[in-house]
């Protein structure tokens, strides 16, 4: 159930001095006083920082008058919002029905083994975050994964690990 997400993340809402909170000003300017603005503001915040830092919640509350409780309630309800920093590349492995039938579990497990992290975790070098997602809409190419904006289809365990390794190699150089 969605409520479960709160407990996991309550402690991890981080305060980070490297966050340039002023980057939010244009976002706030754009959405201030518009009805239904809460989700777009949080989406834009996440686009700015890659996640929603604790400071950002407070800053937005101060500037717009939105309630912290409302913001936190919404941020923990929707799967899209993250309250902790993520790696540079986000690996989203599809676990939709079509992908499940075509053995998507193996893709996640192979990458977990290769990167030595669990589903939902980030590698210690902050290069990769591994996530599961419900469906990318490319079901006929199942099993599918998305890294950043690129979708890869017709995967096997080995193939997916190779793709990840290739990115790793590029980053090292």
């Amino acid at each position: 159930m969605r409520i479960k997400r709160i407990v996991n993340e309550i402690n991890s809402t981080t305060t980070d001095s490297t966050i340039e909170i002023e980057k939010l000003d244009p976002v706030i300017e754009k959405f201030r006083n518009k009805k239904g603005n809460l989700i777009p503001i949080l989406q834009a915040t996440q686009n700015t920082f890659g996640f929603i830092p604790k400071d950002a919640f407070e800053y937005i509350a101060e500037k717009t008058g939105l309630l912290l409780t409302d913001m936190y309630g919404v941020a923990t309800f929707y799967a899209q919002f993250r309250l902790k920093p993520v790696g540079k590349h986000i690996i989203k492995v599809c676990h939709g029905t079509a992908c499940h039938v075509q053995n998507a579990g193996i893709i996640t497990e192979s990458i977990m083994e290769a990167l030595k992290i669990s589903d939902g975790e980030t590698t210690p070098d902050n290069l990769f975050t591994l996530e599961s997602i419900a469906c990318l809409g490319c079901c006929s190419l199942a099993p599918v994964m998305m890294i950043d904006k690129e979708v890869y289809g017709k995967l096997t365990g080995k193939l997916s690990v190779n793709i990840v390794k290739e990115i790793q190699l590029k980053e090292k150089n």
Binding site: C94, G96, T97, A98, A134, C135, G137, C138, C139
Partner: peptide, 11 residues
């Protein structure tokens, strides 16, 4: 919103 995982006609 096409939530059914495994359907992609709307997309």
């Amino acid at each position: 919103d096409e939530g059914d995982p495994g359907a992609f006609m709307d997309r």
